[in-house]
Amino acid sequence: DTINITLPDGKTLTLTVTPEFTVKELAEEIARRLGLSPEDIKDTHNGKTLDPSLTLAEYGITPGSTITLEIK
């Protein structure tokens, strides 16, 4: 299953994830792909900052969802 990550420059990154991924694991994968530190990444969905300890499923993030990435 894939989700879309909207980057600060407007580009989109597509990642393969499972509903059990935590937001922290997602940030780590994004950081790895972009050459950043996971601590520099802030993920938001529907205007809410995502708690790193919760899973994508707990936020109702499903395949095809879009998450907005902010760099701290």
Rank of each mutant, 00 (worst) to 15 (best):
D1A: 15
D1G: 14
D1P: 10
D1F: 15
T2C: 07
T2S: 10
T2Q: 10
T2G: 05
I3A: 01
I3K: 01
I3H: 02
I3E: 02
N4W: 12
N4A: 08
N4C: 07
I5G: 01
I5Q: 03
I5F: 05
I5S: 02
I5D: 02
I5E: 01
I5C: 04
I5M: 03
T6R: 15
T6Y: 12
T6P: 02
L7P: 01
L7E: 01
L7D: 02
L7Y: 04
L7V: 04
P8K: 09
P8R: 09
P8F: 06
P8V: 07
P8A: 10
P8M: 09
P8N: 09
P8I: 08
D9S: 13
D9E: 05
D9L: 04
D9F: 09
D9T: 09
D9I: 03
G10K: 04
G10A: 03
G10W: 03
G10C: 10
G10Q: 04
G10Y: 03
K11T: 12
K11A: 10
K11N: 11
K11D: 07
T12F: 10
T12M: 11
T12Y: 08
T12E: 04
T12K: 08
T12N: 07
L13G: 01
L13F: 14
L13H: 04
T14R: 11
T14G: 03
T14N: 06
T14V: 13
L15R: 00
L15D: 00
L15M: 08
L15V: 12
L15I: 13
L15Y: 02
L15E: 00
T16A: 12
T16I: 11
T16M: 10
T16H: 13
T16L: 10
T16E: 09
T16R: 12
V17D: 00
V17N: 00
V17L: 07
V17P: 01
V17S: 01
V17G: 01
T18C: 05
T18G: 09
T18I: 04
T18E: 04
T18H: 12
P19M: 09
P19T: 05
P19Q: 06
P19V: 06
P19F: 06
P19I: 06
P19E: 06
E20Y: 11
E20S: 12
E20F: 11
E20L: 12
E20R: 08
F21V: 07
F21W: 14
T22P: 01
T22E: 00
V23H: 01
V23F: 15
V23T: 02
V23M: 11
K24P: 00
K24T: 04
E25V: 03
E25F: 05
E25S: 06
E25T: 04
E25W: 06
L26V: 04
L26S: 00
L26T: 01
A27Q: 13
A27H: 15
A27P: 00
A27W: 15
A27V: 15
A27S: 11
A27I: 15
E28Q: 10
E28G: 05
E28A: 10
E28P: 00
E28Y: 10
E29K: 05
E29P: 00
I30F: 04
I30Q: 00
I30E: 00
I30D: 00
A31T: 05
A31L: 06
R32L: 08
R32Y: 07
R32G: 04
R32I: 06
R32S: 07
R33M: 12
R33K: 07
R33F: 14
R33V: 12
R33C: 08
R33E: 06
L34F: 08
L34H: 01
L34P: 00
L34A: 04
L34R: 01
L34E: 01
L34N: 00
L34G: 01
L34M: 08
G35E: 04
G35F: 06
G35N: 09
G35L: 05
G35D: 06
G35Q: 06
L36F: 10
L36P: 00
L36T: 09
L36S: 06
L36E: 03
L36A: 06
S37I: 10
S37R: 13
S37W: 10
S37N: 13
P38C: 15
P38L: 13
P38R: 08
P38F: 15
P38H: 07
P38K: 07
E39A: 14
E39T: 14
D40Q: 12
D40C: 15
D40E: 12
D40F: 14
I41F: 12
I41V: 07
K42A: 12
K42H: 11
K42P: 13
D43Q: 15
D43E: 15
D43A: 15
D43G: 15
T44K: 14
T44I: 13
H45V: 14
H45G: 09
H45S: 11
H45F: 15
H45P: 05
H45D: 08
N46F: 15
N46H: 09
G47P: 03
G47V: 05
G47W: 10
K48G: 10
K48H: 13
K48V: 13
K48F: 12
K48L: 13
T49R: 10
T49S: 09
T49C: 13
T49M: 09
L50T: 03
L50P: 05
L50I: 11
L50Q: 03
L50H: 04
L50D: 03
D51E: 06
D51T: 04
D51V: 04
P52C: 12
P52Q: 14
P52L: 13
P52H: 12
P52W: 14
P52D: 11
P52V: 12
P52K: 09
S53Q: 10
S53C: 09
S53E: 09
S53D: 09
S53Y: 08
S53V: 05
S53M: 10
S53R: 10
L54S: 11
L54D: 03
L54H: 08
L54Y: 07
T55F: 02
T55P: 06
T55V: 03
T55Q: 03
T55S: 06
T55A: 04
T55G: 02
L56N: 00
L56S: 00
L56C: 04
L56K: 00
A57T: 08
A57D: 05
A57C: 07
A57K: 12
E58G: 03
E58I: 03
E58R: 02
E58S: 08
Y59V: 15
Y59T: 07
Y59R: 03
Y59C: 13
Y59G: 04
Y59A: 15
Y59I: 15
G60L: 03
G60E: 03
G60Y: 02
I61W: 10
T62Q: 10
T62R: 05
T62I: 12
T62L: 13
P63W: 03
P63Q: 06
P63R: 02
G64M: 02
G64E: 03
G64W: 02
G64I: 01
G64V: 01
G64K: 01
G64F: 02
S65K: 04
S65F: 06
S65C: 13
S65L: 06
S65Y: 05
T66L: 05
T66Y: 05
T66H: 07
T66F: 07
T66M: 05
T66S: 07
T66N: 09
T66Q: 05
I67N: 01
I67F: 04
I67Y: 05
I67D: 00
I67L: 11
T68Q: 13
T68N: 11
T68A: 13
T68G: 06
T68S: 12
T68F: 14
T68Y: 14
L69T: 03
L69G: 00
L69E: 00
L69D: 00
L69V: 15
E70W: 08
E70R: 06
E70P: 07
E70N: 09
E70S: 07
I71Q: 05
I71L: 12
I71A: 05
I71N: 04
I71M: 08
I71D: 04
K72D: 13
K72P: 09
K72N: 13
K72E: 12
K72Q: 11
